[in-house]
């Protein structure tokens, strides 16, 4: 057995012991052999309530006509089905163009699930399928979603889509399927690995750098500092949902 493996075993046993001692949870299930445990690495700690994931979008840097973020989202999340009626297609993230009819000033910005602190979609969901993780990421549990679309009625940002057809081209890490409702997950599968969402990465790769992702609760993070310095806007702030996605420049 190699050195790193050995380390990870000790890590796991340590974590298991802490878990068992601290929480009183049986860490080792019946029928589970210690020799096999040694081959697994420790599971992650999970979402922490100390963290509040958020995004800051600088609309002054976002270019009208650029859809690098949308493309990256579709690739990452396997959104590739084609529907006869485009209004039935899923859109986790979309580009919106704004124009002030008085001043003529125009803005372009990406819009997606705002990961509300008080999400109406979660409040109205009859089965609890719409849920918010401890770190503020709002998800749909497709195991319990019955496809009633009540959350779509409740979301003020039109962030949710209903899957109108059978899917077979999913990415293994992003399950999605017919008859359930879905929305932007902040690329939770990447965030849990310590990466940033695909759209943010794509925006940086396109050299626009209009999107910033990070922990709003961590005062040392770039996003928290920018939010403290510049004037940011929450879309439909009147609803007091304390959203996780903030905009700058509108």
């Amino acid at each position: 057995m190699t050195e790193p493996n050995d380390k990870s075993r000790r890590g796991f046993l340590g974590a298991a012991a802490v878990g068992a001692a601290g929480l009183g949870v049986a860490a080792i299930a019946p029928g589970l052999h210690l020799i096999e445990v040694s081959q697994a690495s420790a599971p992650s700690q999970g979402a922490s309530s100390k963290v509040r994931w958020g995004m800051l979008i600088d609309t002054t840097k976002c270019a009208s006509g650029c859809d690098a973020c949308v493309k990256a989202c579709n690739t990452e999340n396997g959104i590739n089905e084609v529907l006869k009626d485009p209004r039935q297609a899923s859109q986790w993230i979309r580009k919106i163009d704004l124009k002030d009819p008085k001043s003529g000033i125009a803005h372009s910005l990406p819009m997606m699930c705002q990961h509300c602190e008080h999400p109406p979609c979660v409040d109205v969901c009859p089965t609890g399928a719409s849920m918010k993780r401890a770190d503020g990421i709002v998800l749909v549990d497709r195991h319990t979603c019955i496809g009633c679309r009540y959350c779509m009625l409740a979301c003020p940002y039109k962030a949710r889509s209903f899957v109108h057809m059978t899917l077979t081209e999913q990415n293994p890490e992003v399950p999605r399927g017919q008859g359930c409702v879905e929305s932007c997950t902040f690329c939770v599968q990447r965030v849990d690995k310590g990466q940033i969402p695909a759209c943010v990465e794509a925006c940086a790769n396109a050299e626009h750098n209009a999107m910033l992702f990070g922990d709003l609760n961590d005062l040392n993070s770039a996003i928290a500092q920018r939010v403290a310095q510049v004037k940011t806007t929450q879309v439909r702030a009147d609803l007091k949902l304390n959203v996780g996605v903030r905009y700058q420049g509108i």
């Binding site: 859809d67 949308v70 209004r87 859109q91 979309r94 580009k95 919106i96 163009d97 704004l98 124009k99 002030d100 009819p101 008085k102 819009m111 003020p156 940002y157 039109k158 879309v235 439909r236 509108i250």
Partner: peptide
């Protein structure tokens, strides 16, 4: 949905 009051809104998602 009126997300940006007073603005003219267009998008690929029928906003």
């Amino acid at each position: 949905l009126d997300m940006f009051p007073g603005m003219q809104v267009t998008s690929s998602f029928f906003d």
